[in-house]
Design a protein around this nucleic acid. Sequence first.
DNA 1: TTTTTTTAGTGAATATGTTCACAGCACACA
DNA 2: TGTGTGCTGTGAACATATTCACTAAAAAAA
Lengths: 230, 230
Amino acid sequence: MAEKIGKKISLQTVDRMSSYRKVLEELHRAGWESVYSHQLAKLVGVGAAQLRRDLASCGTFGNIAKGYPVYKMILTISRLFGTESLQNVVLVGAGNLGQALLSYRSFEERGFHIAVIFDIDDSKVGKVFAGRRCYHIKELETILPDFNINIAILACGTQNLTELVERLRKVGIRSILNFVPKQIQAHRGIYLENVDFAGKLEKLSFINRLGRQIGTYFLGGCMVNFFAVH
Amino acid sequence: MAEKIGKKISLQTVDRMSSYRKVLEELHRAGWESVYSHQLAKLVGVGAAQLRRDLASCGTFGNIAKGYPVYKMILTISRLFGTESLQNVVLVGAGNLGQALLSYRSFEERGFHIAVIFDIDDSKVGKVFAGRRCYHIKELETILPDFNINIAILACGTQNLTELVERLRKVGIRSILNFVPKQIQAHRGIYLENVDFAGKLEKLSFINRLGRQIGTYFLGGCMVNFFAVH
DNA sequence: TTTTTTTAGTGAATATGTTCACAGCACACA
DNA sequence: TGTGTGCTGTGAACATATTCACTAAAAAAA
C-alpha cells in the first residue's frame, strides 16, 4: 500500500461533502459564522466523529473550542470540487428529462452550467431551450470542442450508447452523468456515474418489506438478516 | 452481534441487485438461458467473486458448471424487491421534473406505477398528467389512503418539507425518494433516499480534477491520496 | 465408466470504512 | 494568571465489504 503522504479521500466522503456544503450554505444564509461538528452532523444526519474525519481528510479546518468556520468551509469544499467558478457541461438529449434538467436551479447554484445541448431529433435541433441552443448530435465533433467541456449529462434514448460515449471521449469528455436506464460498457478513460430512478424505488420497496426492524426476515423465499438503516 | 440464522444483505448489495436484474433482462430478451458469474460480472462491471457472493446472500441460485439461470434469477430478484406485481407510488410535485418522471418509462417496466399526483399550485390541480390526476396537496389526507401506497416521490418546492414528510408518514408512507435539493431532517419511521443531481456533478468534477490516476495530488490546497476508480 | 474440465459457493485473508475515546488546546471567566 | 469547560483531530478498536483461493460437484470428454 502506498505510504501516507497526504490524506485519503474516498468517494463516499466526497458524496458526504456535498451534503455538508449544502447544509453549510443554509447555515451561511441564516447568518451562522461557525458551527460545531456535532451540530452540523445532526443536521446532515451522520455521526460527529465521521464528519470530523471527513473534514480532516480534506485538510485542516476547525478551530478547537470554536468549531468550524462556515463560510471558509464552503469555499474550501468548492475548491475541492473545482466549482469556485461556473463550469460548463453538455447535455445530450432534450426530451422530458433533459428539459427538466435545463430548468433545474441547483446546477447553477452549485457551480454548473449546461452550456449546449445535442439531440438526434430534427424537430428539436435549432431550437433554444431555456437559453441554450440545441444542435444535432452529428455536429458533436464540430461544435463541442469550442466549449472546453469535460462533463456530459446523458438523458437521451438507449440506441448506440457505446458509440456515443466513445465519441464524447474523443472530444474531451472525461466523466458522464448517465440518466439512461441501460447498462453502458466501461470505457477506458471515462468515469460513468449512473442515476437509476427505478433502481432507487426497488431499494425503497425492499426496505419497506423488511419492516425496518433489525432482525431476521423471510423475503422472496430467502432468509435475510437485516441491520440498521439508521 | 446477532447469530447468523440467514444471510445478510447490505444495501450496497441491494443496489447492485438492481444492476444485475437490469442486465439479466437484456440477456433474457437476447435469448440467453443461463450465464456464468464472470460473464454477468463483466457486463455489470463488478468482480465475479462479488457477484457470486451477492447472489448467494439472496439464497442459493446457480448451477455448478452450468452458470445461473437467467429467467429464474429475474423472478427471484423481483420477488426480493417485491415488484412481481405493479406497485403504486405517489408523486408530490408536478413541475418540470415531476412531469418528466411521469413519462419515465422504466418505472412501469420495473414494477412501479405513479398512481396519483399532488401539487400546491392551483393551476395544476384537477389536471390529468399522462393519465394521472393531480390533486391539491391539502387533500392528501382525504385522497391518498384510498390508494394503499407506501412509497412517495418528492419533486416539489423546498417549503414546509418537514411538515410534508410528517403528513405523508401519517397516511402510510414508509419511504421517500426525494429529488428536492434541500436537507430534510430524519423522521422516525421514514426511510429517506436523496437524489442530488448537483451533488453527482460535484463528484464528477472532483474525479476529473484528480486525473484518474492512482497516486497523490494537490487539490484545493490539500494533499490527497487517490486509489482506483475502477 | 473414468478422467478432465469448469464453475458455484464459501472460509479465510485482506482492505476499507466507521466509531470510540482521549490528549491537547483554545477560550471564557474568575 | 490560573482553572474549568468543551471542542477538534486522531490513534486504536471495531465493523463491514471485497477479494482470494480452494473445495466439491456437475457436465463433458475420453
